[in-house]
Write a protein that binds this DNA or RNA. Structure first.
Lengths: 220, 220, 220, 220
DNA sequence: GATGAATGAGGATTCATTCAT
DNA sequence: AATGAATGAATCCTCATTCAT
């Protein structure tokens, strides 16, 4: 991308800053597809046009690389959410739902551009790895607080006990779309990660949101 | 297979059945927790009180064991669904929703007793392993057909294009509860796999079902 | 050796008991010559007619192998000394010097047959490895106690403050003969480990002993 | 070389001299503690506040650095001995023992200030590295000649055959005090390298010298 | 003189699997 | 049915060294 200006004859070295990013990109892809244990450092290196030892000039080891990938992937989500939460605070109750939808779109857009992140988070969640609490504290917790706010501030569709499940359902649906893409690619004849499918999912989620938060007429 | 009588001393997974079952039990747990790549045959063997070579007297190899685990785990789900679908066919449209709820409960009950299956399926879905299509054909496809039937037969909350997403959302919510248990254990202060949480989730799912299928008053 | 009865066509397996000993023998030699860090597991394995991974069927790792080598090498010394100390207790003061000489000879004989042990101990002492305290407690301490007894019980050549140095000198002279063999092979034109040189050293040590313990006529 | 004036601010090893000296100091310490194979160039560089590649601006490689360390460490010993030998030649037989003692003190003082050298020599001796013959020719041989002279010139305590062992014993005792310091630190509750212990060892060595060279009254 | 990046060689260890017993 | 021993392949990582800057 930004290597355009770079000396085209660059043979051995390459733009230092981009190497790190290139490794992160490749690692994100492979970790997402195969998980931490299933990914060989050498494979990451190879796809990043390096040898495995060279990779150690940029990262302290496999685990450190994994964590860097995770951090880089989750940070934007964290930013989206904190920004949205900050905005929401100064809004009327009525406008909060609109803000929620904006946030939702932003998250979906980010995940659509980085579908690996959904997978990464679910891998981490499945294995209960040591970075899980980082994810929880950094990303999940804020969104949950935000989500519970949204729910409690609207007509209470869900009572206090149900709310955690409702929030969890949200997360499952949002992440699942990306994380379980291979399954649904096999199931339907469409790639969930294709732009138009992402667009559909976003529309679906908006309806889903209204459903989940609506002053539904049906009680238990 | 040999589970027919359902030995009453069974705690969660089984008893001193045959070695083969013991291996399957252990393997299911480890594969679910660590994934295929992250699980060492030797670890499975050790926890099953054998040595790794002995395990080869019962299974042809790691991959074969993995598939056996998967098959054993998914088969009951398949049975539940086909049975339910068969039942539904002879029911009035009005009774189908009740049957759907019964099926839902049955699935949740099974997953609750075998929480590893949810994880296994999601591992497999994440990595897009070769057993995925087996799962899809054997379990997911039938439930989807059933689900889409249910939806189309009720007031059409979801139009034809949205229906796949709605079905997917269902699957995400059901599986996610088990697969992402570590995350939500960290997030809330409760174990999603504890009996009372399962019970709550079942109640939540019933409301969720009504929501998803209801002749909701909100249009686009 | 004891493989005689064993099937002569034994191709892959070999006498199980002897493999472990064979590894220990080779490892002792290589560790003694090159030190712990300087010895590759693969080299040990190769000289023991194995592959490196096979070695892990017998020992838990390089460090564990090293410690096993050390333990096996030091144990006999420990036995010699404790036996001698036990004997000495029931002897008259006059006979203790004779017993000391017997012990000396036994130690020298053992070291002569296992010249690597001297080297191992000195390697360990130089690097201050974690097994050092084991050596000290197991072997050095008893011999020191014995040595200090011997000295105090004879005419006190060395006053209390000098005695530790005298004991240390003993140890240096005994071990050094083996540990620094390469140097003295280069220095003199004789191999310190050749039988006749060992014999000479033993004679020398006897005179040395008398010198160190003698009621010498010279004061400070 | 540039040590001529012996900068008074020198603590033990030197001061902020040239980078080259700093590297040598660090390398001496690490090689002494861990041996050649056990020491990583990067560790040396780091402790000398450089990166490994920078080190190559000063030395041709690890081996070259090792040899430089050895040369720098052994040279002063060589100087002491040749000077002493030169002096001794013009002395009466009676005064030679005094000169021997002076030399002994000088050696001990040097080793006390550079305790690593003793370790280095013993490492080299243990592994029989390629620099060993340099050490032998440069340092050990001269001292041996001197020592054998001293012995032969005094009443012959040791006959011709024993003399090499006696000389060797000398070397063992002198070097061992430094090389096996970790062991004796563990054994006694005192650091052999502490100034007062060095002082004691020097006193001990003087008595030891008299013992070894004395016209002892005991025959075989 | 110093350094970040890169790398070939090697090093310890794990792993799935085989085989003789 | 079980196992100890063996192993080729692979894994993560270290190391000494080079080179462009």
């Amino acid at each position: 991308m930004s290597e355009a200006i770079d000396d085209p004859t660059t043979s051995t070295q390459g733009d230092p800053e981009s190497t790190r990013e290139r490794i992160l990109d490749v690692a994100e892809k492979l970790f997402a597809d195969r998980g931490l244990a299933g990914t060989a450092v050498r494979d990451i290196a190879r796809e990043a046009s390096l040898t495995a030892p060279s990779l150690y000039n940029h990262f302290d080891g496999k685990q450190a690389l994994y964590e860097a990938v995770l951090a880089r992937g989750v940070q934007p989500l964290f930013d989206i959410i904190t920004a949205s939460n900050a905005t929401a605070e100064s809004l009327s109750v009525a406008d909060r739902q609109a803000e929620s939808e904006r946030m939702l779109d932003a998250i979906m857009d980010h995940l659509a551009h980085h579908p690996n992140i959904g997978k990464l988070i679910q891998h981490e969640s499945l294995t209960g790895g040591p970075s899980l609490s980082l994810i929880v504290r950094g990303w999940i917790r804020p969104i949950v607080d935000s989500g519970q706010n949204a729910m409690s501030s609207s007509f209470a569709v869900w009572d206090e006990q149900e709310r955690p499940m409702a929030v969890a359902a949200w997360i499952h649906v949002i992440l699942g779309h990306f994380a379980m893409a291979p399954l649904f690619r096999e199931l339907f004849d469409a790639d969930p990660l294709a732009p138009e499918q992402i667009e559909r999912q976003k529309r679906f989620l908006r309806r889903f949101a209204r459903l989940m938060l609506a002053p539904a007429g049906d009680a238990d």
